[in-house]
Nucleic acid binder design. Structure first.
Length: 889
DNA sequence: ACCGCCGGGTGCC
DNA sequence: ACCGCCGGGTGCC
């Protein structure tokens, strides 16, 4: 069983060159990794020389190492598609030099230390908190370094025994990676003379035998860290997984906290479910319940998922996710929270005598533990020792703590919410609300700290970040992310910026916390700082990969996690047998539009052409290869449906009245908006997030390589070369009829492409600046007689937190691929505050591509495969099927 | 580490 | 003895 001991092989020149290139690449794309190396140098292997027993571990090395782990793990975005190659038992050495402790059954992290002066192959072992435990023995490290540096596999460790040893301990390592790398990893292991238990030969018994653990004592929690699939548990079927996922955010109506009335300053009466939410939110901020998966075992706090345990109480999670359906009043509830739960469960002092009451509060405030926490948080310290806490509390200078205390930041996409403050808060209560936006925004930290509420947008946070951001210099009492799913892409600048905000309490408001897959949840947990999942590695290991691979324990953990931190009610939920809200009725009509004889002939001609071409691709199995061509055909057909004129037009929507310079300006602005809005934008050629984005004159964004290919194969101006024009007969007929029936009735006209026509209207799409948007919304919502009665709304712009209850009739001009986006649009006006019955009209050109799109939409509602990050081949398949159905092939 | 490894001291039985 | 053996010093990477 013993491994032969081999001297560390000298790297050949080829290896060295490769190595350097690799490092350069890593450095150039991930500054954080650079930081990891330099910090690692300071805190890692040399730390024992400068160890300071009085240094607070949570502030120095631990934080740095977990950051390092996070940085390293974020390099690998595809953890869930990986397969298990095999296991081996390795040795952790050097335990006596480090403070990190592990317990039996605990998972450990493995981090490469390429700059280690003693061995460039060094692999560090760290526990969940990021405290270093030791190193992997060098012979094995040599083999692992090769695997890890070339990204051939991810290596994960679990420690079963020997955790009390002073010098070394065994660790079970599992190797996970993409199937195509299995061979090289296995060969490498053989080459390094490391005993590798291949997954195919693997059986539970021999693993236990090798790791020296009695299978009976092997707890299920630890077992799941190795994700035993064979012989122990039956993985979930795709169907079960889908159902589980569907229900992940259902049934989260925790009512055990009862109801709580809002502070007097809130003038809008809360509905019962809003009182429930307020009570739940207050409890989450004030009560000191252990975070999910932690339990007290004797003197220790034990984390049942990772096996970690510690003497110190784990950090509380003050906040969570309020995931109520659209239109249930998340905003009002949050305003109520801000005013009701300031400090020690007392309301925010907002009378005319603001300063007086604040001073009074300070003078009499007893120094309780919670105050210490509070003060510590305000001064940016996250210490865990009482001694330190006291110190901080005293040190905090009065002006700073006073000004910082009742400040709260609110990241919103729209300014609408300042109106909501006016609307929901008694006029005689002076809540200081500041809109941090626009070029003349007041960037003084002192000023911002003196506000009760600061409202800003994700774009502003993102723009400020790294540029002496005053927002990042303030210790907020509370940060609330509205439409929090916007920051689901961890690579987006604004997500990174938001993560860095310092706050005592953190909330996410989102009607759709998961948009595409389990992955979306990670960013939310990272924002909430839910340990240890805020580090990508642990999230991947404990939740994401197990769940995507159908592991029952993993799913259960995910459910527990979500349940612990989320409150969600839907419009159909009931409180004490009664529906949460009674909205006016909503009815949806599909209006079929006939093409004229000539149009129909032309359309049929084009369709037959298209059908022939696509039919050939399907027969050849090259649909995806020709995806760009296929899209062109589909788009042309849709343009036929919209207006035949579109086919000959090459003009641009944005530039009709603009000079070339102005057009350019606008395009740049649009591109900037698209990029700043995170990963939302999908390139419609490759169907993936936009990579190397470019913008066309018609304001569509594609990946550069994709559009280049389309153009080179097509040679004509392609894709939606112009915007959609209304079918005048169909829409105008409706608009005129409505106006004659009831002049006060307002309409939304929703189209993917918006375009002017001779009707009094305002227009809202992605090209508007924030300020202009606010203005447009205000104009439209106004009840004044001369206010616009029609709003042109682009499908995408309609999906970001708008309140358009002034409208009660929605016209959907062209079916979208994404039914959820349509729903969201409709919900913008069918929500709390809507007084009239809502009528939705969808226009479909009879017997056309559009009609088929509607059919596919219906099917799609049942299909959640996307949500589970199904394999690329599945996705491709469903795309091909979609296209076949469209063309009736 | 109740090990392995190193290198100095040592040397019949 | 250019060995073996002994026992002390020592110890991650």
């Amino acid at each position: 069983m013993k491994r032969c001991v081999w001297a560390c092989p000298v790297l050949s020149p080829v290896h060295q060159i490769f190595y350097v290139i690799l490092l350069q690449r890593v450095f150039s794309c991930a500054v954080s990794l650079k930081a990891m190396f330099s910090r690692g140098w300071r805190f890692g292997w040399n730390r024992y020389r400068e160890v300071d027993l009085f240094t607070d571990r949570h502030e120095s090395s631990a934080e740095t190492l977990s950051q390092a782990i996070r940085a390293a793990a974020s390099e690998d975005p595809e953890a869930d598609g990986s397969v298990l190659f095999g296991h081996l038992q390795g040795t952790v050495v050097g335990l006596r030099y480090y403070t990190g402790v592990v317990n039996p059954g605990e998972m450990v992290g493995l981090v490469r230390q390429p700059q280690n002066p003693y061995d460039r192959n060094a692999v560090m072992v760290a526990n969940i908190y990021g405290n270093q435990v030791g190193h992997i023995k060098k012979e094995l490290a040599a083999a692992m370094a090769h695997v890890m540096d070339n990204n051939l596999a991810k290596v994960e460790g679990v420690v079963h025994s020997g955790t009390r040893n002073s010098f070394t301990m065994p660790v079970m390592l599992s190797f996970w990676g993409r199937e195509e790398n299995r061979k090289s990893v296995t060969e490498l292991m053989v080459l390094h003379k490391v005993l590798f238990i291949l997954d195919c030969q693997y059986s539970v018994t021999n693993l236990f035998w090798i790791s020296g653990v009695n299978p009976k004592s092997y707890s299920s929690t630890a077992g799941q860290a190795l994700s035993f699939k064979k012989g122990v548990t039956v993985p979930l079927t795709a169907e079960e997984l889908k159902n589980a996922f569907d229900n992940l955010f259902e049934d989260l109506m925790e009512s055990k906290d009862g109801e709580k009335g809002a502070a007097k300053a809130v003038c809008t009466p809360l509905l019962p479910h809003q009182k429930q939410a307020l009570s739940w939110m207050c409890a989450r901020e004030n009560k000191s319940a252990l975070p999910p998966f932690w339990e007290k075992r004797g003197e220790l706090y034990y984390n049942s998922v990772t096996g970690f345990s510690a003497k110190e109480i784990p950090e509380r999670l003050r906040g969570g996710i309020l995931a109520d359906d659209m239109g249930l009043g998340k905003t009002l509830t949050t305003i109520a929270l801000i005013l009701t739960n300031f400090h020690e469960g007392k309301p925010l002092p907002v009378d005319e005598s603001v300063t007086c009451s604040l001073d009074a509060l300070h003078a009499e405030a007893p120094v309780l533990l919670d105050d210490m926490d509070f003060a510590a948080a305000l001064s940016g310290s996250t210490t865990n020792t009482t001694a330190k806490k006291k110190k901080t509390a005293k040190k905090a200078n009065p002006t700073q703590s006073q000004s910082g205390q009742h400040t709260c930041i609110w990241c919103l996409f729209l300014f609408l919410y300042s109106d909501q403050f006016e609307q929901h808060v008694h006029a005689n209560k002076k809540v200081k609300v500041y809109l941090y936006y626009g070029t003349e925004r007041n960037r003084s930290q002192k000023f911002l700290s003196s506000q009760d509420v600061v409202i800003t947008t994700y774009n502003v946070i993102s723009a400020d970040f790294g540029n002496k951001s005053p927002l990042h210099g303030i210790n907020w009492l509370r940060v609330v992310l509205d439409e929090g799913h916007i920051i689901r892409n961890p690579n987006a600048q604004m997500s990174k910026a938001v993560l860095q905000l310092k706050a005592h309490r953190r909330w996410i408001l989102s009607g759709t916390p998961i948009q595409n897959s389990v992955k979306d949840l990670w960013m939310l947990l990272a924002f909430l700082r839910l340990k240890p999942f805020d580090a990508r590695e642990w999230w991947n290991r404990v939740i994401q990969r197990p769940v995507t691979q159908g592991d029952r324990a993993g799913l259960k953990n995910l459910q527990t996690l979500v349940k612990c931190i989320t409150l969600r009610r839907t419009k159909s939920s009931k409180v004490k047998g009664r529906p949460l809200v009674s909205l006016p009725e909503k009815s949806v009509y599909v209006e079929q539009v006939e093409l004229s004889q000539a149009e129909r002939e032309e359309y049929e001609l084009a369709r037959n052409d298209g059908k022939n071409i696509i039919g050939r691709y399907v027969a050849e199995g090259t649909v995806l290869k020709h995806y760009a061509d296929v899209l062109v055909i589909l788009m042309r057909l849709r343009q036929h449906c919209c207006h035949p004129d579109l086919l000959t037009k090459t003009s641009s929507d944005l530039g009709a009245a603009a000079t070339p310079a102005e057009l350019r300006e606008r395009l740049i602005e649009k591109l900037r908006l698209v990029l700043a809005s995170g990963s939302d934008e999908e390139c419609s050629v490759c169907l993936d997030s936009v990579h190397l984005p470019v913008i066309t004159h018609c304001a569509h964004v594609y990946c550069r390589p994709c559009i280049a290919q389309v153009i080179s194969t097509e040679q004509v101006p392609v894709l939606p070369a112009a915007s959609l024009q209304f079918d005048v007969q169909a829409l105008m007929g409706n608009l005129l009829r409505l106006r004659s029936e009831d002049g006060s009735r307002k309409c939304l006209v929703v189209s993917q492409f918006t375009r002017k026509h001779g009707f009094t209207f305002v227009r809202l799409d992605g090209s508007l600046t924030q300020k202009r948007r606010t203005q447009v919304i205000k104009e439209f919502q106004s009840a004044a007689a001369d206010s616009p009665t029609v709003m042109l709304l682009s499908l995408k712009a309609g999906g970001v937190g708008l309140n358009l209850t002034a409208a009660s009739h929605v016209f959907l001009m062209d079916p979208a691929w994404n039914p959820a986006a349509e729903e969201q649009c409709i919900d913008r006006c069918h929500r709390l505050g809507q007084k009239r019955n809502v009528v939705v009209t969808k226009f479909i050109v009879k017997d056309s591509v559009e009609e088929n799109m509607v059919k596919i939409q219906r099917q799609k509602q049942d299909l959640l495969e996307k949500a589970f990050g199904s394999s690329d081949s599945d996705r491709s398949k469903s795309r091909i099927d979609d296209i076949r159905a469209l063309m009736e092939l």
